[in-house]
Design a protein around this nucleic acid. Structure first.
Lengths: 260, 260
DNA sequence: TTTATTTTTGCAAGTTTATGAAAGAATTTG
DNA sequence: CAAATTCTTTCATAAACTTGCAAAAATAAA
């Protein structure tokens, strides 16, 4: 098989370290990096793409910036919201198509799901259940019936998570549940926080229909805690940049794929 | 594809930082920024547009102003103008005196209790349980442990109310609970919404110590639903305008009165 | 070790993105 | 309400990016 783009297995840890060191904490241009590493610019780009998928750094036009402060911390809320905003917008639009007036829906945390929340004004008489304070703020004056899961507040994602969410979660009947994720692989979705994973699983087990919203950057990434198997989901909505590999995996699991 | 306006993927973080720094906290004109950043005015305009979309700054004719953190939050949960702001402020200050580091407190809805929430930055390691989204927004980045009651959202008061709040409420142990009210008479407190009353009673029955924050305007008023007997409360905090009649009634019920 | 297979790399062609200049629309100001 | 300034839109261009291919390197198999 011809390898290009992102099918590469791995990057030598040696060069990975070199790149990250070269980046320091500022921005480096591609040509600078190519000179430092003694490789072509094309190779640098491929390396950066790989490292971006792992969440180690953030590519920008002309170069890359290191993303972590200390170690792999999760991005702050508003930083995340501005990444791949275009893709997220399109994914949200496609997801909106799945919602009809009168539905009862669940909205998980995450910026893609938040983009969907903003579009719900165009529907009537929804019952919206959510664990996201941002989504709640967005829907406060929407006229929809709004129910918040209780629980412990997690500042990083601005969601309510953990065991305290279960009594309420168990009391509710949810039609369509929309989830975001940090990472998505053949084995399932993963997220950084155990409490977050707990609540995802809880709702995942109770919704009639589970829908995953994940932009193409999420594919191939894993995070700390497993939050659900791939076949827990009925539909996956992603953008056109998604690798064809994903299509195969979904087909095998009989999951419907929507490309926005 | 021709790129203009806002199709750009992202702005290098480098220049983003420069712009925000250049803005400082005053207004900068486009030409000033263009000179500082060594780019054309057209580019500055595009950058500003992008940053405005992210909510980082506010464009004005001729330049841009930075949006500060406080304003950002208010965009989400803008507060209605409050009556008797002075009294409420003093009551909140007095109530703060009842809270010690490490306490577990409950915050009810209402503007007086919200004023208290704003003061909690001065304490450490609190566990704050609340049914108020306004209070939650206020405490989001406080570092305190924050737990939200789940339940149905009531837009008017921006609180979570009704039977769905009971499973979580029953699972929690609460030290000091602070309540607001609409009306306060010798027979007890009352409020406009049955769901609101339900949740008040629920917590009232579970807190070790129940504290009522009520400015003098509340006395003598009744509202639709009874939300608690007077002797359910241990402490009442009010302002100096409170009628002496109240003192007598409280004394009879052996309730401590704090005049702010 | 040699051979077969997979993975990585550099180059080049084609595409996308960022930027500055310029023309026309909108706003402010006198 | 007219002049001046600022804004938006369009266009051209250069720089950056992606993708396909073939050669080189690394890995696995014989």
């Amino acid at each position: 098989m011809i390898s290009h783009g992102n099918n590469r297995k791995l990057l030598t840890p040696e060069r990975e370290a070199l790149i990250l060191e070269a980046l320091g904490n500022g921005v480096r241009t591609i040509s600078e990096l190519a000179a430092t590493l003694q490789v072509s610019e094309a190779t640098v780009r491929r390396d950066l793409r790989t490292l971006e998928q792992r969440g180690e750094l953030q590519r920008v036009h002309g170069g890359a910036v290191r993303v972590d402060e200390g170690t792999k911390r999760e991005l702050l809320f508003h930083e995340k919201a501005t990444l791949r905003a275009d893709e997220k917008e399109r994914i949200a639009e496609a997801a909106l198509g799945l919602i009809e007036n009168g539905d009862s829906v669940y909205l998980d945390g995450g910026s893609t799901v938040l983009a969907l929340a903003r579009k719900l004004e165009s529907r009537r008489e929804l019952t919206v259940v959510t664990n996201s304070l941002m989504a709640a703020a967005e829907l406060m004056e929407s006229g929809h019936k709004l129910i918040l899961l209780g629980g412990e507040f997690r500042p990083l994602s601005r969601t309510l998570v953990g065991p305290l969410t279960s009594p309420i979660g168990e009391a509710l009947h949810i039609g369509k549940a929309f989830f975001g994720t940090i990472g998505l692989t053949a084995s399932g979705v993963s997220t950084t926080d155990p409490g977050e994973a707990f609540t995802k699983k809880l709702i995942l087990g109770r919704a009639e229909q589970a829908i995953l919203l994940a932009d193409s950057g999420k594919f191939g990434r894993t995070s700390l805690v497993e939050a659900g198997k791939l076949d827990d989901f009925d539909i996956v909505v992603t953008d056109s940049g998604a690798p064809s590999e994903l299509q195969k995996i979904l087909k095998k699991n009989k999951i419907k794929l929507i490309m926005a």
